[in-house]
Structure formats: structure tokens, C-alpha cells
Design a protein around this nucleic acid. Structure first.
Length: 280
DNA sequence: CTCCTGTCCTGCCGGC
DNA sequence: TGCCGGCAGGACAGGA
């Protein structure tokens, strides 16, 4: 999926295209994605103005003029396509939701694997919604720090890779950015959380922030068929340091000297990429 | 509680 | 060429 930087990029694209627009039509093309669409979803949306866009973890929040907020999750394969007023659009396979706006622009939610979700909440109760109730801090926000991370890790018996994937520890990281952050922090993905020192927590927090900020600055990573929310293929071909690079020489180890190779292992059923020389 | 495994779904890629 | 197994960015239920 789209991890935090990609979701942030999609949200910004949506903000640019649909903020302030009134929804005049909702074409809900099936009754569920991963979970059912909210009851009477089209009726709830039609006629409402989009007041505010925001992101929490990997969720996009679309606040409407009424007291409702639409909560969207892109799952593994969810994409948002924004079609301008003067552009023609033909429905494609896996287009599940099409919103039409008062300026004749459209927003299409396409999700091949249908692991995505669309939910509805009362705006004033958003914090207590089950999607958000147990989330950890935003990694780019003020509530995430070495102290906070260290405290969250110190009694855990699982490995650091799994812990960083856990949205209750820190919200918004996924498989790619966890691998990348651990690489930059020089921490082995199989390290038990309780052995991570305060100094390593500092490094990790810094690495997480740097990796995410760079990816956001690059407009979200372009991975395979990931597209920008504006419908254009991403311009930046973001180069990962270790993710999907098994067998290659890592950037920290001049290969001719160290013969360093990036390895791929499986942790909790997910691939982990790391450099055994550069990560201890 | 914590931790780990399996599962939802389709598409794609590599091997035979 | 075609078929099949394995794998893919996430989240959650359920069992140990």
C-alpha cells in the first residue's frame, strides 16, 4: 500500500482538486470493499460540500459540510484518480467509487485487491472512531520522540521490525519504510525491542523522520503502478536503499571491499530487506 | 495482556 | 504459448 508518504501525497492531490467542491453525484459500484460501504452512502454524500482534507496514519479524512467525515483507506492496491472538468473519463476495471463534483470534475477510487475501506463517522467523534482509537503517534508529529519510542519498546519481546509495523507504536509506517528506516538507523530488523537503547531510539526516530520527509518531498514513492492523485504517473522514481534490493550491494558498504549484500528474510509472513553488515 | 498466523482479493512474474 | 505457485505496499480476527 501506499504508506504514509503516498497517502499524504494522495490527500494533498485531493485537497487541491476537491476542497470546497460540492458532491453532485455518487456512483457506488459495489456494496463492499474490505468491509461494506456505509449505509446509504451515496445519499449521505450527495449535495455535501468538501470542507477539509486531512490524513491520520494511512487514513484519508474527508470532512463534509454536514457533521460527517468520510474515512478512506487505500489498503494495498487502492488508488485515487482525479479527473479535471474538461477531461473525459471511461470507467475502468476495479473503479468502485466515483464522485462527481459541481465543476464537472471527478474523483475515482480504484482498488484491484479491495483491501481498501470507506467508512463514515460523525466529525465530532472522529478521535474515538475505532480506526483511530488505538493508533500510536504520527511519526512526523510532536508526540513522537526518542523518549516515546524507547518507552514503547522497552518491555516488548517481539522484534523491532514487527514493532514498527504495529500502528499502535507509531502510525503510518509499512513494510517499505520500516525496512528503510532500520537501514538508515543501522539497526538489525531481528533485534528484540527490549534491547534497543535510548541512543538507538534517537537514531531510529531521526531515520524514520528523514525517510518519510524525503519520500513526501518526492511526491510519494513511485512503486510499480502507483500513481499520483492527479492521475499522472509519478515523476520521481524513488530509489529505496534496501527494499526489494536483495543481492545488491548496500550504499553503506563499498561492495568491492566488504562484499556486502542486501538480504531478504521473512518476518511474520512479510519480506524484510536489510544489510547484515550495516545493521547490527 | 502479547505475539504470531492466517485470511481477505486480484494481478503479475518466473518457472516449467 | 499456457498454467501454476508464490508473492505483493495492510489490517484484523482468532488462537496459543
Amino acid at each position: 500500500m501506499p504508506e504514509l508518504p503516498e497517502v499524504e501525497t494522495v490527500m494533498r492531490g485531493m485537497e487541491h482538486a476537491i476542497k470546497g467542491r460540492a458532491i453532485i453525484n455518487v456512483d457506488q459500484r459495489r456494496k463492499n470493499l474490505r468491509i461494506p460501504f456505509p449505509a446509504n452512502f451515496p445519499v449521505v454524500l450527495e449535495g455535501q460540500k468538501v470542507q477539509q482534507l486531512s490524513r491520520r496514519a494511512k487514513y484519508i479524512l474527508v470532512q463534509l459540510d454536514s457533521d460527517k467525515t468520510v474515512i478512506m483507506h487505500l489498503g494495498m492496491s487502492g488508488r485515487v484518480l482525479l479527473v479535471g472538468p474538461d477531461q473525459k473519463y471511461e470507467i475502468q476495471k476495479h473503479d468502485h467509487l466515483i464522485l462527481s463534483f459541481d465543476d464537472d470534475s471527478k474523483m475515482i477510487f480504484n482498488d484491484a485487491r479491495r483491501f481498501g475501506m470507506v467508512m463514515l463517522a460523525n466529525t465530532n467523534e472522529i478521535e474515538s472512531h475505532k480506526a483511530f482509537a488505538n493508533l500510536g503517534p504520527e511519526p512526523l508529529g510532536n508526540h513522537f520522540s526518542a523518549d516515546v519510542l524507547f518507552a514503547a519498546l522497552k518491555n516488548k519481546k517481539t522484534n523491532i521490525k514487527n514493532a514498527l509495523m504495529d500502528q499502535r507504536i507509531v502510525a503510518g509506517l509499512g513494510n517499505i519504510y520500516v525496512c528503510e528506516s532500520l537501514f538508515y538507523a543501522g539497526i538489525h530488523p531481528e533485534r528484540i525491542c527490549a534491547t534497543i537503547t535510548k541512543a538507538e531510539s534517537e537514531k531510529l526516530v531521526q531515520a524514520i523522520r528523514d525517510v518519510l520527509n524525503k519520500a513526501i518531498a518526492a511526491g510519494g514513492s513511485t512503486l510499480k503502478d502507483y500513481r499520483h492523485a492527479d492521475g499522472e504517473l509519478g515523476y520521481f522514481q524513488h530509489q529505496f536503499a534496501v527494499y526489494d534490493r536483495a543481492g545488491e550491494t548496500c550504499s553503506k558498504c563499498p561492495g568491492a571491499i566488504n562484499k556486502c549484500c542486501i538480504e531478504k528474510i521473512t518476518q511474520s509472513g512479510r519480506s524484510t530487506y536489510f544489510c547484515p553488515q550495516a545493521q547490527k
